[in-house]
């Protein structure tokens, strides 16, 4: 079945190998291996409690995984082992950005400021640790202007340019979600990790989100890894779907392949264990062996 070379095999931007995360006796992620292709939109799906967010937390340096290796290859050709990096280096050097399931904007700051915080590092360097910037020496003003232009570009793209100076907390829910994505993009990431970006959006907003994600991939060349329950988003835009259940990977392939995978169907519809065994049995008969599966 694995005929053509897939991006995630030939040119992965992120490779997760044998990732395990234990919290005391609870195994949240169990020996998970998968890759996200460069320029792909990769969806990580699975029922509630499958360990998807834990995977994200490991990738972005929130948690130190119990075992496993996560290699990130940004466009500049460097290689970063994410499990060894402190959280702010993950964003700065490894170029991974993320959003959260619950919105975590800096609600007291304006939209523009939210996007400028995301460009903190180049600005901090340009301002000579603030001292030169306050004195007006050096290229701080040009850099600041560039940063503002970039922020305005993103505000324009998400349709919030008119509210640049309002506090972020005043925005309606759907706009806050878009702002979070724009803020993550302002860090200039090579991998954008989105935790349920479509949660709580109405169908129109959800369609807008799809368009935004596709344009991010097209215009910025950023690879996207997303956790999503909204199947219209998953099936509509993703190139690659990884399915988790109880912290273990149960399927990995193109959207069409995973959609028709009996184990995925079983995991989502909720079937008894015996029935899963039955299905697996049928599966072995139809596909020959376990190794033959994608």
């Amino acid at each position: 079945m694995t005929t053509s070379l897939r991006t995630w095999d030939s040119d992965p931007v992120l490779t997760v190998e044998h990732l395990t995360m234990r919290f005391g006796g609870l195994v949240a992620v169990n020996d998970l291996s998968f890759s996200a292709g460069r320029g792909d939109i990769t969806a990580l799906i699975g029922p509630n409690g499958a360990g998807k967010t834990t995977v994200f937390n490991c990738i972005t340096g929130f948690y130190k995984p119990t075992t496993g290796m996560m290699s990130m290859r940004p466009r500049d050709g460097s290689l970063h082992l994410l499990e060894r990096l402190p959280d702010f280096i993950v964003a700065r050097k490894a170029k991974v950005a993320r959003t959260f399931q619950n919105i975590r904007l800096f609600s007291g700051m304006t939209l523009l400021e939210n996007l400028l915080v995301a460009q903190h590092n180049p600005l901090m360097i340009a301002s000579g640790m603030t001292i030169l910037g306050v004195l007006g020496i050096g290229g701080y003003r040009t850099k600041e202007k560039e940063a503002i232009d970039r922020a305005r570009y993103w505000l324009d793209k998400i349709g919030l340019i008119g509210r640049a100076d309002d506090p972020a907390g005043d925005l309606p829910y759907g706009a806050q979600r878009r702002l979070e994505i724009a803020r993550a993009m302002c860090t200039g990431p090579d991998l954008l990790c989105l935790d349920e970006p479509a949660a709580g959006l109405n169908p129109r907003e959800s369609a807008e989100l799809n368009a935004l994600l596709l344009s991010i991939r097209k215009d910025d060349g950023t690879s996207i890894l997303l956790i999503e329950h909204d199947m219209s988003v998953v099936m509509g835009i993703s190139d690659h779907v990884v399915v988790l259940e109880y912290g273990t990977k149960i399927a990995d392939g193109t959207p069409t392949e995973t959609r028709n995978d009996p184990r995925v169907i079983a995991a989502y519809l909720g079937v008894d264990d015996e029935e899963v065994e039955e299905i697996e049995h049928e599966l072995d008969e139809t596909t020959g062996s376990e190794e033959g599966r994608p």
Binding site: R98, V117, R183
Partner: peptide, 8 residues
């Protein structure tokens, strides 16, 4: 935490 994830 969020500030750290943005590279601060």
């Amino acid at each position: 935490k969020m500030a750290a994830l943005l590279g601060v």
